[in-house]
Design a protein around this nucleic acid. Structure first.
Lengths: 189, 189
DNA sequence: ATATTGAGCAAACAGTTGTTTACTCAATGC
DNA sequence: GCATTGAGTAAACAACTGTTTGCTCAATAT
């Protein structure tokens, strides 16, 4: 799996080959089939590795108890840290979210859906959502999750350029502030 | 190029082969090199075909002169129509925006940037943006462009299921309304 | 001590790959 | 009418592909 992630830095999953992966991993082609039935199988395993451990993290990002301003700063910081420490995983998810392999696409969609549910739950618990239609809460959660993914990949593309990273983080914060403002003035019901 | 688009419905660009494309197009492999130096060359040609004609359209979507509500309905309708008539192009852009081929990724990024500039220009002309910091206007434009792309691909995945399409369009409209609300209450300067 | 199992290997299979070469042939320019 | 050119072809090249087979060999379980 590490070998595959390595290779996926410069190509997309549907162009990966069994031989290519095993060569990178330093083993024989046949060895691959001891662990995975398919390349698609490897793909969904990678999805679980990349997104499985993410849930706790993001709920932590939401757990700011202070002003919305502080919560936003904290959330963006958490995303930036995660990108710095899991570049390959983030790249994989962004690249294959709409990629060419159905099983992988669907695994990512399912995981992001669970994810959106959890965010919706956290949002519903905030005072600002009092009296809101649940469908509207979920719509905001979708907005947040999509925004998070796009921010992560933008930070990735900054390639450790601190100045670019700062610009992206600043934009992301202002966008979140705008959305937060919209929430506060939404006509609930 | 049509043959390539056809194949790209089920795989991503970096797994495309010269022979594969020429076979689908009904010509010999060598013929490919009469038209393109590279596969990447074909890729950026596809990007221009897919995004080149889009500018006029979206500015038209913004040209609603009525209430924000009407403008939003119109914009989402324009997106839905475009997706219906250019499924392959939309899929290609969404899939390769973060895909495995650098030249294609960069061509899409450049085109979307021009795009964002135009949207920012249109936004700046609206009364709501009076007194706004240009950087803040651009940040909103980015939000809109990203949202547009995500809405387009979501509609694509609905696969002509009218009920799912309706749900997605409704969500998109509510999200745009929320953002619009945020704009109205933004502290300019 | 012995059986089972998980994880690895080399070799072989026929089929596909990108690219170049030397060629044809209709359309076009003048 | 004749040269040029744009767009196509078949054939050839070595290199690479996914997958299966039969084999080892260490670790584990009993």
């Amino acid at each position: 799996m590490d070998a595959a992630l390595q290779l996926l830095e410069h190509q997309s999953f549907s162009s990966l080959g069994v031989r290519e992966v095993t060569r990178e991993a330093g083993m024989s082609p046949a060895g691959f089939y001891r662990h995975f039935r398919d390349l698609a199988d490897l793909g969904v395993a990678l999805v679980e590795e990349a997104l499985g451990s993410l849930h706790a993290m993001v709920l932590a990002a939401f757990a700011g108890l202070g002003e919305p301003e502080e919560v936003i700063d904290h959330a963006v910081q958490v995303i930036a840290d995660h990108v710095r420490e899991h570049r390959a995983h983030v790249r994989f998810i962004a690249r294959e979210r709409f990629g060419g392999v159905r099983q992988v696409r669907e695994a990512i969609a399912a995981e992001l859906e669970r994810f959106t549910d959890e965010v919706a739950c956290a949002l519903a618990a905030q005072p600002v959502s009092a009296g809101w239609n649940p469908a509207d809460v979920r719509m905001v959660a979708e907005l947040y999750v999509d925004h998070m993914v796009l921010t992560a990949v933008a930070l990735l593309e900054a390639e450790a350029d601190a100045e670019a990273e700062g610009r992206i983080a600043s934009t992301a914060r202002r966008q979140l502030r705008l959305i937060s403002l919209g929430r506060r003035h939404w006509a609930a019901g």
